[in-house]
């Protein structure tokens, strides 16, 4: 009983709200890269916030349901097909035993979240069902789905199908994004003109963008001259190893900034010129290759305001759907 994987998609993983608390020993938080959409999908099918969903990146899987369930797809505009018939996103719908759920081509965004009433009931590892594939931890056998996998579904609360997220509370996926950052701790290592260029450049996301980090292209940035301190590499973008926050932006060699996301390594020897504020990490997670992005600077008050606004939006979502 549960769900059989007929085709896995490109990088489909079980995710939830994540596995916080172990980054100090090198285990990243993991979890859905777009938490808002992941939570919305769970609310649509009557699940609690901590139920596990499938994160479908760029391409959807093909799944056969071996039991009836209520499902919902939120996040990227990846059109669901039930036995080949179109179904809406941001809205729950019923599936019957033997039904096949597949997906059309991605229309916008990067990651769609598929929730099923009862949640995907894989074993809990260190407090979470999230897959950390690099560490072979959590999820379904610590890896992305493969054809032939069978995923168990947990006991459902019995959600009525046809719940919908109101239009105003759905995410959209523009071709250009403004991502807010707090500069530091090492932005003083950039020349003044490079610091300005970092904030003024229209960066373009490269195909090298996964759960670990998102690599952008657009300008070369110069670092100030210095004598490398003991323990730092010789490249001016190197520092003595330091912890990497989730969302921190490193620029190895001054080319191609990388925004670290929820499967990142916990530390290393690259300058972090800034950190994406937590409220905008979902937007990074929904960025697909070729999306243009400008990093805009905010201060701590601005970041905290954005965090409160995001929390208010989640409350509104809960009010409307949950």
């Amino acid at each position: 009983m549960g769900v059989s994987v007929l085709k896995p998609g490109l990088a489909t993983t079980v995710q939830d709200t994540g596995r916080p608390g172990y980054y100090n020993v090198g285990i990243p938080p993991s979890g859905s890269l777009d938490q808002y959409s992941s939570l919305a999908a769970n609310m649509l099918v009557g699940n609690g916030d901590d139920a596990a969903v499938l994160e479908c990146t760029y391409m959807g899987p093909e799944l056969r349901f071996d039991q009836p369930a209520t499902v919902a797809v939120a996040g990227a505009d990846l059109p669901p097909l039930l036995n080949g018939e179109p179904r809406p996103t941001w809205e729950s719908f019923a599936v019957g035993a033997g039904d096949v759920l597949s997906f059309g081509f991605l229309r916008s965004g990067a990651r769609a979240y598929l929730a099923v009433s009862g949640g995907f009931d894989v074993p809990v590892a260190l407090g979470s069902r999230s897959t950390y594939a690099l560490g072979a931890l959590g999820g379904h056998r610590g890896r992305a789905l493969a054809a032939g996998d069978e995923l168990p579904i947990g006991p459902a609360g019995g959600a009525a199908p046809r719940r919908a997220v109101p239009e105003a509370l759905r995410r959209n996926h523009p071709k250009h994004r403004e991502i807010r950052v707090m500069m530091g701790l090492y932005d003083h290592r950039l020349t003044d003109s490079a610091r300005r260029a970092f904030l003024e450049t229209e960066w373009r996301l490269t195909p090298v963008a996964d759960r670990t980090g998102f690599r952008y292209r657009g300008a070369e940035l110069e670092f100030r001259d210095r004598d490398a301190p003991f323990g730092a590499g010789s490249d001016p973008s190197n520092i003595v190893d330091a912890p990497y926050p989730i969302g921190s932006i490193q620029i190895p060699g001054g080319v191609e900034p990388i925004v670290l996301h929820r499967d990142a390594v916990s530390g290393g020897g690259y300058v972090m010129v800034g950190t994406v504020i937590s409220a905008d990490m979902d937007d990074v997670g929904q960025s697909a290759p070729n999306i243009t992005t400008r990093f805009t600077e905010v201060d701590l008050d601005g970041a905290l305001r954005a965090r409160h606004e995001r929390a208010a939006r989640l409350d509104a979502l809960r009010e409307a759907v949950g």
Binding site: L10, Y58, M59, F105, L106, P207, A288, P289, N290
Partner: peptide, 8 residues
């Protein structure tokens, strides 16, 4: 024949 995903 369409590309099922974005990339190079």
């Amino acid at each position: 024949i369409r590309s099922p995903l974005p990339g190079v």
